[in-house]
Amino acid sequence: MFEEGQLYAPVTEDENGVTVHLTDDHPGANDPEYRRRREVIAGPALRWRPGDPVPQVEYTDAENAIWRTVCAELAPKHERLAIRGFLEGKEALGLPTDRVPQLDEVSAGLQPLSGFRLHPAAGLVPLDQFYGSLADGVFHSTQYLRHGSQPLYTPEPDIIHEVVGHGNLLANPAIAEVKRRAGEAARRCETEAGLQFVADVFWFTIEFGVMYEDGELRAYGAGLLSSYGEIEEFRGATILPLDFYSMGTVEYDISHYQPTLFACDGMSELTERVGEFFAEFDDDTPGRLLAARNRTAS
């Protein structure tokens, strides 16, 4: 398992303004202009409340160029390695490839397809809020972009990961329903352990899930579909069948390509079996899964 906070640079606000705390090894750590830009984008998102207009970001030419580069590089990889459901959602949503879209623009495209909308996030959203909001058809999305020195790499989820990965997935109604059920599971949790279990199964499905389709192993996880490098490497991982107890308890390192992935046998296993897991999950589910495993082993 992992701590969600490892994924995001902390964002704070005090009398001196908003500060985004980048780690020393972040590509933009020693770039004062990039730091200031991150803080300019983070401020309105940090202060935003539901019902307010979604903050608009006037993206720079350099930021739009990063978006164009990533979209151009990922497009042929998606055609070759992504599941049909993602490709169909991507076509239906029709995101611009020449500029960074605004969050409310993406929401306007998603609403008639799956009913989802995007809310702005300055950085880390508390686990219960992030997953619980999925039950309401809300996905929390960052608005900043990765550093221009490495346009095909980001150490944290940026708008490219959120929109190219998750946004296109949410354009597929069946996959969006699985996410909604994950949110409902999170809402039912009364313990941190239960919520973390939901988050970890989500990680190995919606974030880093793979699927056998027409005899080929293809990607459906947003983390793979938005990663220029990892999407080319996932077929070299150890591929296991779905095992919810293992997915909810295995130790893994988020800073490296995932060495072990869990595969669905077609879209129906994702929408039915994974969807059913989230639909029936409660705090006692991990214990029941462990007991069933022990009975099978004895």
Rank of each mutant, 00 (worst) to 15 (best):
R180W: 10
P173G: 08
L240G: 06
I206T: 14
A219S: 04
Y245W: 14
R288S: 13
P27H: 00
A122Q: 10
Y228C: 12
A135E: 05
R49Y: 07
P155I: 01
G266P: 07
G236N: 15
F130D: 07
T97P: 09
D253Q: 14
T12S: 04
D128P: 06
L261C: 08
Q111L: 11
Q129W: 14
A193D: 13
T238I: 15
L134M: 13
G137C: 06
F202V: 02
H119P: 06
V100S: 02
Q56M: 15
W48A: 03
S246H: 15
L22D: 07
T60D: 14
V18N: 06
S107L: 08
I83F: 15
I160D: 09
G229A: 08
T19M: 10
L110D: 04
Q111K: 14
G148S: 15
F234T: 05
S114F: 07
M1P: 05
T23S: 14
E184Q: 14
T69F: 13
A174I: 10
E58D: 11
I83D: 13
P53A: 00
S268D: 11
Q6N: 05
S149V: 12
R295F: 12
L74W: 03
P96A: 13
R38D: 03
R38F: 02
N168H: 11
E39N: 07
E276W: 13
P286T: 10
G167N: 05
N64D: 06
H256V: 15
V18W: 07
V138F: 10
M247H: 05
S141C: 05
